[in-house]
């Protein structure tokens, strides 16, 4: 019987947990599942709708029009000289949408998938990851919309004299990754907590909306600073503000760019992502008993 302890087991199911128990090899083995989940999300989302993927265009366009009417035409928030307000808003909304879609899409991971999680094992982190990837496609389409309007404004009107992409645009892919990571990390934290405390589901739905107002989506950070200096730290240290400001700087050349703010966005999103991963991992094993 002595030999039994020296045998090499493939894996051990036990009550103890390490802080990070991520088996990257296992996740890699399930990459096909990730791909199929993304495919499922995409092909089933607009089944039995008439406009189908056109909804991807409609939502940001209409929101931008409304924002332009209300915040720029009615409330006269300046968006910078030589930059059309519509384009300014579209940039903000496009980037905000990706973050918020990642956040809300992942924040109910456990609750929405409790049926399947209760039956079969696979690395749970696949599910929120698939959300981030399928939203990436939506983001890509919205980015195309943004680019076409950009081209229209630059080449067919004279309103966009100063809207010039900066060399920092090369960093855009990283910025998108940060957005995804931040939304994913935040979403994973929330999804882990909602398994036990459902109150958070209510918080998420309106919290995301409130957060948008605090993330400089429809106004430049500089304008907020000049108007409400005593609250400006609230907006300034919001990592989403930094990301959106950077996005607008890269694409339209409005706002400021500093390596410091780029690093700030990078560090915060990576930290949030890692914290989310740890909490998610901790919850994953026992959530089925508390959900």
């Amino acid at each position: 019987m002595k030999t039994s302890d020296t045998q090499d087991w493939l894996y051990i199911i036990s009550a103890k947990r390490n802080l990070i128990n991520l088996n990257f090899k296992e996740i890699w083995r399930y990459r096909d599942l990730l791909f199929l989940f993304v495919k499922r999300d995409i092909i089933t989302q607009y089944k039995q709708t008439i406009l189908g993927p056109l909804w991807y265009f409609i939502q940001p366009l209409f929101t931008s029009v409304i924002f332009t009417l209300i915040f720029n035409n009615l409330a006269s928030i300046p968006t910078g000289v030589g930059v059309p307000s519509f384009l300014f808003n579209l940039a903000g909304i496009t980037s905000w949408n990706y973050f918020s879609a990642c956040l809300t899409g992942t924040s109910d991971t456990f609750k929405a998938n409790q049926n399947i999680f209760g039956k079969v094992y696979f690395p749970r982190v696949i599910t929120p990851l698939s959300v981030v990837f399928s939203k990436l496609l939506k983001f890509g389409i919205q980015l195309l919309v943004f680019i076409s309007f950009y081209i229209y404004f630059v080449f067919f009107t004279d309103k966009a004299a100063n809207a010039v992409p900066q060399t920092a645009l090369l960093l855009l892919p990283f910025l998108i990754i940060f957005m995804g990571l931040f939304g994913l990390g935040f979403g994973m934290i929330l999804s882990s907590m909602t398994t036990k405390y459902r109150d958070l589901t209510f918080l998420v739905s309106f919290g995301v909306q409130l957060l948008m107002y605090g993330s400089a989506v429809m106004y430049p950070l500089s304008y907020f600073k000049s108007q409400l200096p005593e609250y400006s730290w609230l907006v300034e240290y919001n990592p989403m503000t930094t990301i959106i400001e950077l996005f607008r700087y890269m694409t339209l050349g409005v706002g400021e760019f500093s390596i410091a703010s780029f690093l700030y966005a990078a560090i915060i999103s990576i930290v949030v992502f890692l914290v989310g991963l740890i909490i998610f991992n901790k919850t994953e094993k026992s959530f089925i008993d508390t959900v």
């Binding site: 493939l10 894996y11 036990s14 089925i288």
Partner: peptide, 30 residues
């Protein structure tokens, strides 16, 4: 591995696949 034990452990030398209920994850639209 759907839920963890409170105490104790299970050691295995093979992959475990379960068929707790068939049709898990079927999507009606597909």
């Amino acid at each position: 591995k759907v839920t963890g034990p409170t105490t104790g452990n299970i050691k295995t030398k093979g992959r475990i696949a379960s068929l707790l209920e068939v049709g898990t994850g079927f999507h009606g639209e597909m």
